[in-house]
Amino acid sequence: MFRGLFYLLIFPGLAFQVVCGLIFEWIDRKLLARFQRRIGPPWYQPVADLIKLFSKEDLVPLGSYDLVEVLLPLISLSAVLTAGLYIPIARFTPFSFEGDLIVIQFLMSVPTLAYYLAGIASVGIYSILGGGRSLLQYFSYEVPLLITISGPAVMAGSWSVAEISRSQLTMGPFIIFQPLGFILAVVGLIGKLKRDPLDIPSASSEVVGGSLTEFSGAKLGFWYLVMNVQAVVGIFLLVNLYMGWSNLTFPFAAILVFLVEFLLMVLILSTTSAVFARLRIDQLAGLGWRILVPLALTQLGFVILMGV
């Protein structure tokens, strides 16, 4: 009983994921700042921002569904936290079962749908535009991402993330066999996280704040938390699927390798957001369906052929 609570609330549950999310945000912002010749924020900045948002007045615009607006960020947060529970952190996995990759994929899609609903539930015109864009973007990146992520599963012969991760100890990390798949998965992850260059639903110069334009106070704070935790969970997932080095038997080495892989992923995400310009929505749809989907299918076919 207490063990279960510990898993849920401390590690690898709520506290661990939130702290990782804040650390991720700080590293990301600091890296971006250094890329842009700035000093960047101090280490406590993400916490300070969160405290500020939580202590601010919560405004509910007239005509919007306030219960829905409160529930949406909370549902998204619990969805991504639950997804995080099934992902092994440096070999440690309390709740793994066969098929959890599908569950994780489903749970990770919840914030995007909640984001869309948040836009529709608000009264602002920018929110509606941002919500519509987020759904369009979802259809562009999600299909290639799903096809790509089944690559490691097919290769390992299992739909459990822990099993896929473990099998790489004997077979070798899948990033070596599926480099294309890894790149596609990163693109899909960027799309999922709505990060630059795929921040189309929240592009400030076009739709102000996207779906979150009308959100304020603690609700907005929860949304930011969702984004960060989602980023961390997504990174953990990719690390487990493609870089299975962290399954070493010696625990200390496993943690170290896992940490290095995590930082490498943050570096990749920050660099892409610094170097690429935002795509237009039609360019993204073209990219998703004309380039990413065929590439993902090619990769998957290649994996299947290798297995035969």
């Binding site: 010749r37 000093i39 170097v275």
Partner: peptide, 18 residues
Amino acid sequence: SLLDAIIDAVFSRPDTVA
């Protein structure tokens, strides 16, 4: 290229003052 520019930026002192 922009990638070179950001690598350059990482290894130079920041321009901003706290």
